[in-house]
């Protein structure tokens, strides 16, 4: 999908630190990635991998303190969001870049009608009055598959089920036609059949609007089925990026392979799974070298010392493993 033109979002060498008792912990350690217009990037990793932190850091939504951007740039259409004045950033939030969070129940205020919340951005950023906003809001609710949208515009959140509310949250994000949508675990709180509906809706909206999308998920099945490109995170670093078909067809980082082998499959039955041994490392105690070394079946002595960096292993496919050919 990506063309020779400049990517819409470029993250360069981003380093995010959190202040903790007695020091600092790096939640993102030199993350670089690109997202092109019209592309869906799947950001996958386990809890503590830094994927949600990255997603929030792009829009500077992390509470500071304790969070602090130590280094790096976040270029959105050429503008560095890291150094942008707060007032300018507020204009970008909700208009050019929108975000969808995990829990639809807490993403909407319980006391206001859903329709008014969905169209709030139109009234603030586009200067619409209530009547214009209502008309547009009903159309939005229809476009995201809410039956009888005109009647349900004035419903309150408790009247809707979780899946419907997540649709409303998506409608709210889409109200000002963003060019980039950040979706942080948008289906994790939902049942699997509803998850499928929401993913279909997101894919459809993206195809119709041509926006770029970052889909954060812990579920590799979700990103595998939904995304063009994949970025795998571990211990605050990107360990593998590439086209979805390549990353899951021929993983070049042992962590990606481990994730795939840990997951029970629907298409074949194995008596035993092959879990990744051990626990994720304590981010406060990371030494030099590969953060995955203690859990890795392919680790060699060099892995403990050599600096870790993404290196291209095939066209558009990069791995942070020192020995990507050994991974199989």
């Amino acid at each position: 999908m990506s063309q020779a033109t400049e990517p819409l979002l470029r993250v360069r060498d981003l380093e995010i630190a959190f202040k903790v008792r007695g020091g600092e912990v790096l939640a993102n350690r030199g993350v670089s990635l690109d997202v092109a217009a019209g592309e869906t990037l799947g950001l996958v990793g386990e809890s503590g991998s830094g994927k949600s932190v990255l997603c929030r850091a792009i829009l500077r939504l992390l509470p500071s303190p304790p969070a602090r951007t130590k280094r790096g740039r976040v270029l959105f259409d050429g503008t560095d969001l890291v150094t942008l004045p707060e007032a300018r950033l507020r204009e970008i939030r909700g208009t050019d870049i929108a975000m969808v969070f995990q829990n639809p129940m807490t993403s909407l205020s319980p006391v206001w009608p859903i329709g008014d919340q969905v169209t709030e951005g139109l009234r603030i950023h586009r200067g619409m009055n209530r009547i214009e906003a209502r008309e547009r809001g009903i159309a939005l609710l229809q476009s995201i598959g809410i039956p009888e949208a005109a009647r349900r515009y004035d419903d309150h959140p408790w009247q809707w089920s979780g899946g419907m509310l997540q649709r409303a949250v998506i409608a709210m994000a889409m109200a000002c036609s963003p060019r980039l949508l950040l979706a942080d675990e948008p289906t994790t709180a939902l049942d699997v059949t509803i998850q499928e509906q929401i993913l279909a809706l997101l894919t459809d909206l993206q195809a119709r609007s041509g926006m770029a999308m970052v889909l954060v998920s812990h579920d590799i099945g979700v990103v595998a089925e939904t995304c063009d490109r994949i970025a795998v995170m571990y211990a605050g670093m990107l360990v593998e990026t590439g086209p979805a078909a390549e990353v899951f067809g021929r993983p070049r980082h042992p962590y990606t392979l481990g994730l795939m082998r840990s997951s029970p499959r629907m298409d074949e039955h194995a008596e035993r799974l092959q879990p990744i041994p051990g626990q994720p490392p304590d981010l406060a105690k990371l030494a030099a070298g590969c953060p995955f070394v203690d859990r890795c079946a392919f680790a060699r002595e060099d892995c403990r010392h050599a600096p870790v960096a993404l290196r291209e292993v095939a066209q558009g496919h990069a791995s942070a493993c020192l020995f990507p050919e050994a991974v199989r």
Binding site: I144, G145, I146, P147, Q159, W160, S161, G162, G163, M164, R167, D191, V192, T193, I194, Q195, E196, Q197, L199, A200, L201, T203, D204, D219, I220, G221, V222, A224, E225, T226, C227, D228, A244, A245, E246, F248, G249, M260, S263, R265, M266, D267
Partner: peptide, 23 residues
């Protein structure tokens, strides 16, 4: 069964459906 996401090496095309009101 159809809704379970699988680690397939291809993007899946899903039909868009109207919301189901589980309430």
């Amino acid at each position: 069964l159809a809704a379970v996401p699988q680690i397939v090496a291809r993007k899946r095309v899903r039909p868009v459906q109207a919301a189901t009101d589980m309430n």
